[in-house]
């Protein structure tokens, strides 16, 4: 089975230059891989470094050591050492990301926020909007909100816009940072359905879910992040 994402021996620490250069180790020796069609979940308590790992895999955090090998554009690239331009191309075509919070742009409608990743991939705007409408309807976002910028939406409404934006494309790898955190039960079930559909389509998913029901419903396996604790002495 295809393995589009392989992480080996990744380490991350933060050096706080404004605090006399104190170094905060986050994780080290992070090694795992994700197969196409499976959903793996990062497990461990808050502060264990789950979000940091996800952010490194998206190029949002720099990587101190190790490799992140991604199948991209018919070849393999190391995201940990890739140029900004390569990271952007990986984000456009290979790795999608659903964050906890939506960073809104003034004056852009919810519908266009959702359609944008498809337009960036070269889809024509009307087709992209049609797909965005279908997703927003599936996620039960009231139709009267679609034409409005999401800045004033409630937390749960913003999160659904965010989820629709993350799921609209056909990225072969999808990272999910607590996509169900502020959703009610009905919409959580929709997200579980969306994840199942991605698995069937052969997408490799890696997520953080604090909601145990959702986690049990979607996880094929749990990766215990405490094993990568940077304070721990290597076994």
């Amino acid at each position: 089975m295809a393995t589009p994402l392989v992480v080996s021996d990744v380490a991350k620490s933060f050096t706080m230059h404004l605090r006399d250069g104190v170094t905060l180790p986050v994780v080290k020796g992070v090694s795992f891989s994700i197969r196409a069609g499976e959903c793996a979940v990062l497990g461990g308590p808050s502060g264990a470094g789950k979000s940091s790992i996800l952010k490194m895999l998206y190029g949002n955090y720099a990587v101190d050591e190790g490799q992140i090998i991604v199948q991209h554009g018919g070849g393999l690239i190391d995201l940990a050492s890739a140029s900004p331009r390569t990271v952007l191309s990986v984000r456009r075509h290979t790795i999608g990301y659903v964050s906890q919070f939506l960073r809104t742009v003034p004056r852009v409608s919810a519908l266009d926020v959702v359609a944008e990743p498809l337009v960036e991939r070269g889809e024509d705007r009307e087709t992209a909007r049609a797909k965005a409408r279908a997703l927003l309807a599936q996620l039960n976002l009231p139709e009267k909100l679609w034409a409005l910028p999401p800045a004033t939406f409630s937390g749960g409404e913003q999160q659904r816009v965010n989820i629709a934006r993350g799921f609209i494309t056909e990225h072969p790898i999808l990272l999910l940072d607590e996509p169900t955190a502020s959703l009610d039960a009905r919409n959580r079930d929709v997200v579980v359905e969306l994840i199942d559909a991605k698995k069937t389509a052969g997408v490799a998913l890696l997520g953080i879910f604090h909601d145990l029901d959702v986690r049990d419903a979607v996880a094929d396996r749990v990766i215990d992040v405490t094993a990568f604790a940077a304070g721990k002495i290597a076994a």
Partner: peptide, 15 residues
């Protein structure tokens, strides 16, 4: 990358 520099600034001055 802009989001990398802003979310994980490395140089003392950027921090």
């Amino acid at each position: 990358l802009t989001d990398r520099v802003l979310d994980d600034p490395r140089a003392p001055y950027t921090q």
